[in-house]
Amino acid sequence: MSPEPILVEQLSKTYQVPEREGGFGAAVRSFFKRKYKDVKAVEKVSFRIEPGEVVGFLGPNGAGKTTTLKMLSGLLHPTSGRASVLGFTPWERKSDYLRSMTLVMGQRNRLSWDIPAADSFLLNQAIYRIPDDEYKKTYKELDELLELEPLMKKPVRNLSLGERMKCEIAAGLLHRPRVLFLDEPTIGLDITGQARIREFLREYNRRTGAAILLTSHYMADVTALCERIIIIHHGQLKYDGGLTDLSRKIAPFKLIGVMLSDADSHDLSRYGTEVQNEEDMDKRYLQVRADEVTRVTSQLLADLPVHDITIADPPIESVIEQAFNQ
């Protein structure tokens, strides 16, 4: 058995998607003769994740994130390649494997709509064969972190989205999985809701040492939880490494913000590329190559009536976007 919880080698998945032109004639023709097109959802992706690691799995819509997570949780068979999670081959779907991992999909419901979550939890307890004392212990812990108790008595349909998500996540963790695959766990939640789930995941990871592979469209989730990120685009791995290294590799730029006494009258184009920063409208911002920062700064200070100056890394969102587009 391999010591690392997740090992992925050259994993590929190709879908056959029915394809036809628009229009009535084409619809009738396609009824009799289907044409299929191969869509490469994931192409030769490799990575490994160590125990206790929290890794952000990023990419634009349709990049292959969900497909990868589904292969790793055993729902999909890959077209080629290998994967091993906790020493199991996921798509063999052995009971012992299913009992030691979880997949939480933010856009799908696992809880029954008409009954309180507490009853669905008991059903899970029976299916996962969790002994009573262990169940109570885990539930108490989850309750402590997520404040579940007040939500347990209401039918799930009467819960708010944020409350429901807490219950969904808890339902996925009752069996104390050692590997967590989270697909957009904070989708649709407000800022406080997102922050709560984030805080919970961090604490859960700290307490249990479970490995977490997480996709999210909210960069805050990623920056708060993950030291390491994996970026895929068009099914291919684009980047695998530290979050902080990413800016250095992908976008070796700094942002220099200057506050000038008569802000609009100066032409800054000869110092660097001017960029918009909506969070701070008082300053004007220049994107400058990292190795040029000292020179440009002293030049700015010498040439212009500078009141205030800041030097910062570009926001991670824009760096990642740049990484997607490379």
Binding site: K70, S73, G74, L75, R93, S95, D96, L98, R99, T102, L103, M105, R108, N109, R110, I127, Y128, R129
Partner: peptide
Amino acid sequence: RDGSLDYTLLQPAPSMFL
């Protein structure tokens, strides 16, 4: 249709039974 079969298949019990 809504994809919740995925959750059924992830449970450690025979899917036909579930």
